[in-house]
Design a protein around this nucleic acid. Structure first.
Length: 728
DNA sequence: CGCGTCGTGGTTTTT
DNA sequence: CCACGACGCG
């Protein structure tokens, strides 16, 4: 059989990983070393060369984006539809299992998924119902507690407060929360994983079935797995089955949300004979960027150990700019992008990275000032917008009248005269009689247990929902949704809302109708075409889809805007030009991580992740003076900057005292500097523009041009022969 | 019920 | 500093 299509274009270690025997394999894949390629080619190899059925492969990722990319690439390479293959996120796959075996899992057929916002609302309600002091036991912390325990595989019944009163209360809240979810047929994200794990423990036949089916289990971003995910993988790969894990301990940046880097080292213990393969050749960044990143990450203890290298050029040095304040910093970065665009490049190829979202504001102001198109990556998912969630809550109530959380949300949205007082009566009865809100509402109407005015409002609401349930029975989803947003009064309500906000809300509702239509007609295979879902009503399937997929629309390739995002959300992406702002002690590394070595190490990995996003140009900036949260601070430069090799980092601050001696050692740049009177990083004087610092350099002889960042007028390109620069 | 005021708290995020 | 939630009034 011709295998060249699988193996060509792979380097030696990549090939070794792809063609490894039917064994447990850990691929330590450095940033930009082609890990997705290895994963995809391994699957194709297993199917075409090891005689595996495509249906015996399970590949799991963390994000829908990664899963979609993998599916697309498998399809291209295998030339068969990937439809029946189990490629998806941990949550997506676990969800499939729960759907297929809902009764064994103790769930109603049409159970629904809570997002973290729904979850928080339920917890808040519990705190109120039981009159728990929210200043002592804040809902946010309760949520954090519950999710943490679930991520660790713990149920409320497994927990022991050991006489600790606080702990007792957390457990009590957890217990009540579990009860509410069970009664309403709701599962949160952590619950999906926990239940999928428990069902295998409780039903050995089921586990055996899945073990028989999935002979090959592949895991992406293995360093991000948490306790329950690892336990789930361990169960599935028990016995004969092999695991093929791809990860990078140096890119573990989610320890704070339960990810266990240790799972990488556990792998060696738990899978004897584990074959470890390192991918260290990088196809993304210049030599200088890699050398700097390597030097930084070497400061971390307890690494598996890895050193990225490239066959490519050293490229330009890394540029470090010390700004006077955050506005100056923003101006500088915008100037860098403007220059990049003037040189004929796309804004799309630039990214500005920051440690915390609060830093984006000043950057946005500077971008707007220069009319530079930009876009903030991340933020709200489409399906998380309030108006969308309102519409979806109607659908949820139509789908299941047990869903108290959804009913609670819409009973007075838009306002229809069902006030807090009436709601309290409903809750009280539901709690006392142990029935759903819907049944409590029916009970109140029957017994006329509230004042006439409220009663009328309740009757009207009851009528509305009842009618919609009928509509749901014999309409397509999109027709139902159109009816829902009209009849409920949502559209009318948002139309009346003044300003742009109301307008965009109505537009979003319209877009939701579009999303439903697309979902109905979608011929792309998705997790939601699974046979397990076929005898489930389309409404429930759509609702599950909205909970598990972000609903982010694809970027328009015609648009050209600079991207802004946090360092965390940049993981997995790459850009020719990267600027990391706020390289200051207390900000990055964040103050709260400086006390604990393990947290500091994670910050350093975050910095490593940020730096290794850059393909060609890397800018780092810090401000001498910063206002954050209305407080003034005079931070010092981040330790991470000092940990970079001085000879490949250039200070580009105008008029600054050059704190870093310039010993240009990297090739391309040494050449030009040695034959020319000026060096990158050097301070110079210009008759008209005043003082500045040389940023970069191109050409030689009479064509030589230098890029200078002037204190007064900003960035300029000057032809050296005419500029008449003098040393400052 | 909607609007205003006051008070507080504010890494990082996907599912 | 500013966004969001709790509270009180018209």
């Amino acid at each position: 059989m011709d295998v060249t299509h699988i193996l060509e274009s792979l380097n030696d270690p990549q090939r070794q990983a792809v063609t490894a025997a039917d064994n447990n394999v850990l691929v330590l894949a450095g940033a930009g070393s082609g890990k997705t390629r290895v994963l995809v080619h391994r699957i194709v190899w297993a199917v075409q060369m090891m005689g595996m059925s495509p249906y015996s492969v399970l590949a799991v990722t963390f994000t829908n984006k990664a899963a979609a990319e993998m599916k697309a690439r498998i399809e291209t390479l295998l030339q068969i539809p990937v439809g029946g293959m189990w490629v998806g996120t941990f949550h997506g796959l676990a969800h499939r299992i729960l759907r297929a075996h809902h009764s064994e899992a103790g769930l109603p057929k049409n159970f629904q998924i809570l997002d973290s916002d729904d979850q928080l609302r339920i917890i808040k309600r519990i705190l109120r119902d039981y009159q728990i002091d929210e200043s002592k036991w804040p809902a946010k912390q309760a949520q954090w507690y519950i999710n943490n325990k679930k991520d660790e595989g713990m149920r409320a019944q497994n927990l022991d407060a050991g006489g600790d009163f606080n702990e007792q209360m957390w457990i009590k809240i957890y217990q009540n929360y579990e009860q509410v979810c069970n009664q309403s047929g709701l599962v949160d994200f952590a619950e999906i994983l926990l239940r999928a794990h428990e069902i295998w423990l409780k039903k050995p036949d089921l586990l055996a079935h899945y073990r028989r089916r999935f002979r090959h289990v592949l895991v992406d971003e293995f360093q991000d797995t948490n306790t329950i995910q690892y336990a789930w993988l361990r169960l599935l790969t028990g016995g004969q089955n092999k695991i093929f894990a791809v990860g990078d301990d140096d890119q573990s940046i989610y320890g704070w949300r339960g990810a266990k880097v240790e799972n990488i080292t556990n792998l060696e213990k738990d899978y004897p004979g584990l074959e470890i393969i390192r991918l260290e050749q990088n196809y993304r960044s210049t030599g200088n960027i890699l050398n700097a990143a390597n030097a930084l990450i070497e400061k971390n203890p307890n690494r598996m150990g890895k050193k990225l290298w490239t066959a490519g050029e050293d490229g330009e040095p890394i540029k470090f700019y010390t700004a006077y304040n955050e506005h100056d910093e923003a101006r500088f970065v915008v100037g860098v992008v403007q220059q990049w665009v003037q040189d004929g490049n796309r804004r799309q190829d630039c990214v500005i990275l920051y440690r915390s979202n609060a830093q984006s504001r000043v950057l946005e102001e500077a971008l707007m000032m220069e009319s530079m198109p930009y876009r903030i990556y991340g933020g709200m998912r489409f399906f998380d917008r309030a108006e969308i969630k309102d519409a979806l809550a109607y659908l949820r109530v139509i789908s299941s009248q047990l869903d108290d959380a959804a009913l609670d949300r819409i009973i007075n949205t838009p306002p229809r005269g069902i006030g807090e007082k009436t709601l309290q009566s409903i809750r009280a009865i539901a709690l006392k009689e142990n029935i759903s809100y819907w049944d409590a509402l029916v009970f109140i109407i029957e017994t006329e247990a509230v004042p006439a005015r409220a009663l009328k409002a309740l009757k009207k609401f009851h009528e509305l929902i009842s009618e919609l349930i009928v509509v749901a029975d014999d309409s397509a989803l999109d027709e139902l949704l159109v009816t829902v947003i009209q009849q409920s009064g949502l559209v009318e309500y948002f139309q009346k809302e003044k300003g742009e906000k109301g307008k965009s809300r109505v537009e979003n509702l319209q877009e939701l109708v579009g999303a439903v239509k697309e979902f109905e007609s979608d011929d792309e295979p998705t997790d939601f075409d699974d046979p397990a879902l076929q005898d489930l009503d389309p409404l429930s399937v759509f609702l599950a889809y909205t909970a598990l997929e972000s609903g982010d629309s694809q970027v328009d390739p015609d648009d050209d805007y600079v991207q802004l995002m946090t360092l965390h959300s940049a993981k997995g992406l790459e850009f020719p030009l990267v600027a990391i702002v706020g390289m200051e002690e207390g900000l990055f590394p964040s103050e709260r991580s400086t006390y604990e070595p393990s947290k500091l190490a994670e910050e350093r990995r975050l910095c490593y992740v940020g730096m290794t996003r850059a393909k060609k140009q890397l800018f780092l900036t810090a401000a001498e003076h910063r206002r954050l949260y209305g407080r003034e601070s005079y931070p010092t430069v981040s330790r991470f900057v000092h940990e970079l090799p001085g000879d490949i980092v250039v200070d580009v601050r105008p008029r600054a005292m050059v704190s870093r001696p310039l010993t240009a050692s990297s090739s391309g740049f040494k050449q030009s500097s040695s034959s020319q009177p000026f060096q990158i990083g050097q301070s110079v004087n210009h008759d008209k523009f005043g003082e500045g610092v040389i940023l970069s350099y191109e050409g030689d002889g009479s064509h030589a041009r230098v890029q200078v960042n002037f204190y007064q007028v900003g960035m300029k390109w000057l032809v050296l022969a005419y500029a008449n620069l003098s040393q400052a």
